[in-house]
Amino acid sequence: MNGIKQFRKNKQGFLLVDAMIGVLVVAIGLAALAALYTYGIGVMVSADRQEKAVQIAAEKIELLKAADGHSSSDIDPLINSIGTDEQNLKSVDVDDIKFYFWVTSKPFEEYKDTDVNRLYYVKVFVKWSDPRIQTISLETYIRTKDKVKGAAL
């Protein structure tokens, strides 16, 4: 009986050390979960901003596609109204975020036929800060009723 009391007396401090190690492991786990949660929120916000940028670009593409089949004299003012270079950007505010957009376009003339409608290659860019600068682009072709006469490769 005396040996059991002696054994218990020597092992009393281990319970406190075990509890401290357990608390430390739980604290490290909770800190990792908090960091993961914070990172997840940041990714969600970034994805939301990217989705809004894609919606803006798609809106501009749809505006240009409405002129599909018209003459280039109808399409050029639409392209100019959106903005044609990165120095003179147009912008729109969505949820307190400023999105800048512009369009590049060029005639696409790879036809040797004399009676082919002209195609415009159009690319819409949208730029925003998240906190570093992000850019997305959507591209399409717009057909005009202008005929290409003897276009060369």
Rank of each mutant, 00 (worst) to 15 (best):
T135R: 09
D95P: 09
I4T: 14
K65E: 10
S46C: 02
A47L: 06
G83M: 06
I75S: 00
V26D: 02
R49L: 02
K65P: 00
R8D: 04
M1D: 12
R8I: 13
A58V: 02
S46W: 01
F7P: 09
Q12T: 15
L16I: 14
S91M: 05
K123C: 06
N10S: 13
A53S: 05
G29M: 03
V94Q: 10
F101I: 08
G83H: 02
A31P: 08
D93S: 15
K147F: 07
E139M: 07
V17R: 08
Q87C: 02
L36S: 09
F7G: 11
L36T: 11
G22L: 09
L119E: 05
D74M: 01
A34H: 02
I97P: 03
G22I: 09
K149S: 11
E51F: 01
G40I: 06
F7I: 14
K5L: 15
Q6I: 10
G22M: 07
G13P: 12
I142N: 06
G150F: 01
M44P: 00
K11F: 12
D76N: 06
Y100A: 11
T38G: 08
L89A: 09
I133M: 12
V17Y: 14
F7T: 15
I21Y: 06
P77L: 04
F99I: 11
V116H: 13
A34E: 07
P131R: 04
Y100V: 03
G150Y: 04
K5H: 14
V116L: 05
D18R: 12
Y120W: 15
L119V: 08
V103P: 07
